[in-house]
Design a protein around this nucleic acid. Structure first.
Lengths: 166, 166
DNA sequence: TTGTTTTTCAACAATGATTGTTGACAACGG
DNA sequence: CCGTTGTCAACAATCATTGTTGAAAAACAA
């Protein structure tokens, strides 16, 4: 993802207008490695701009995704997650308890659909999701620190695909 | 996935009751390779049982998932999809236009998280989603045949992860 | 078979995430 | 500075999914 200044440029040159709320969102996303949801971004931005609406955040995030500056991913936590890291090709570790998402860089950099399995499907991209427990959720943390985002509500989804855990 | 009769057995022995609507759902799922959503299953079952509620379908599907007889997957089409094929370890091809899901068996049967990348994450399962265009959506089919399930409404999600197509 | 207990059913309302609508307003170009 | 045009915030609506509840049906025992 580019810097806030470069994004301002990019937005202008792509016919979009640049507003204070958008720049605020740019700044918030800078170096955010938590793969926030739209709501999470909104929560942070709201501290700076009281009245910004969730709709605006969604709009800007999707604009950025359209420009290829961030990636929108659906990893089964119930909400679309946004990833500012689009420069490194990578995959994701998803905690099945707290829903946190972590990048897994330098693994399977070139995942190709195997020859012979081509069924007429024109493959554009391949993504791997590793499901498991993040370090925080593995240990029975007594004093629960911040970092656990959404309560394990959405655990109904993303139950299994390739059996391993059961 | 087991046969309808075996599932009846399994439901009984696991303390669940067996109803006509459940057996109907068992039958509908038998050999369904389309990875239907709950709504799609409901649509089919409804032809046989007019009054069955969507809630019942959801309940039964999640029961089956809990028993490990089907898999519930979130591949970014906006709805949870259900896969009766849990015997073959496999991954999925998802069409970014019509949202159809196809099994990709015999590819990456043993996907392991690479050594050295272990960040304290306890990995349970790994799933790969290949995104692209299905054979039907590649060709500009004039007489559009059945097979396109949901309209490309939910295309907003699942835009990109590892860049390739753009 | 008949009653008894317990689960499930269908209908209905509610939830959470996301998107459509709209009048006021701010950004950009001149 | 000013008009044009896109954006904003508030509000309501949508979609997928889940909670609630009285009625009905399944399993079990007599």
């Amino acid at each position: 993802m580019k810097t806030a200044e470069e994004l301002t440029e990019l937005f202008r040159s792509s016919g979009r207008k640049v507003t204070a709320q958008r720049q605020c969102i740019f700044r918030v996303l800078q170096g955010d490695g938590t793969h926030p949801s739209a709501e999470a971004v909104h929560a942070v931005v709201s501290r700076e701009m009281e009245t910004i609406s969730l709709k605006t955040v969604y709009q800007t995030l999707y604009d950025l995704a359209e420009l290829g500056e961030i990636a929108s991913l659906d990893v089964g936590t119930g909400m679309t997650r946004f990833d500012p890291n689009v420069d490194d090709r990578h995959h994701h570790l998803v905690c099945r308890r707290c829903g946190s998402v972590r990048d897994l860089v330098a693994a399977f950099p070139e995942l190709r659909i195997p020859e012979g399995a081509d069924l007429g499907f024109e493959v554009g991209s391949a993504e791997i999701v590793f499901r498991g427990l993040c370090p925080e959720c593995r240990a029975p943390v007594p004093g629960d620190r911040a970092g656990m985002r959404s309560s394990p509500r959405t655990s109904s989804t993303s139950t299994s695909t390739s059996t391993s855990t059961r």
